[in-house]
Design a protein around this nucleic acid. Structure first.
Lengths: 110, 110
DNA sequence: TCGATATTTCATGAAGTATGGAATCGAAGG
DNA sequence: CCTTCGATTCCATACTTCATGAAATATCGA
């Protein structure tokens, strides 16, 4: 991942509503969530939601699929993966033990 | 980690110069880097650097230690760890296989 | 084709953030 | 004590981002 991509992802996530949207989509997983359902769940106006979804989409953090009148949104885990890799690049250059706790926090066993 | 803390961390990182600073400190690990060395390495003015370091420090992403006239900065891995955990919370609620690739990207074996 | 529903686009004012120059602080050395 | 060096703070200007309402677009059912 390049610096500019990482920056756009971080900027997209550095916003209260967008962070909530993204985490909601992370939790929803493969199922995704229709735009309207995001709006009612998070109590946001549809136009504001649409703007924020477009920011997340421009940062490649989410993608969408039309289903008739509704549009279903999904978190883009592969992008998230690349971002985390970029942020922690070479963190273990000196000593693998140091960043071990970071990984532990991410473990999917909880 | 609470949402507000995550937001301040993300906002701090969503800035070209601060992202470079943070990644430099991540690579430096336990050794840390003195402020002056950061300035010369990244070719930034000392006042700008100082501002940006204070933003990163306010977000608890870095901490510092005075050593005579110089001040040495370190990346705060425990904060980074909490941030990643917050972002990916419940990512595996449905299916552990889905977020496995995210972890792989972070693996310290490279 | 018409109306209803779901979502997006656009322009705008208000608020927040970045930047660089100058002044300041704190520690070390003569 | 005075100077130098490393780093920070202050401040005004310029820039960017944000939420909002009004209008537009797309899809479906009648």
């Amino acid at each position: 991942m390049e610096s500019k991509e990482a920056l756009s992802s971080l900027a997209a996530l550095a916003h209260e509503q967008r962070l909530e949207i993204f985490r909601l989509l992370i939790k929803a997983g493969e199922t995704g969530v229709p735009a309207g359902e995001i709006a009612t769940t998070l109590h946001v106006r549809p136009n504001t939601l649409s703007n924020n979804l477009s920011v997340l989409a421009a940062a490649n953090l989410v993608h969408s699929k039309r289903e008739g009148r509704t549009i279903r949104y999904f978190a883009a885990l592969e992008r998230m993966s690349a971002l985390l890799g970029f942020l922690m690049e070479d963190c273990c250059g000196g000593n693998p033990e140091i960043c071990r706790p970071v990984l532990k926090q991410m473990s999917c066993t909880n």
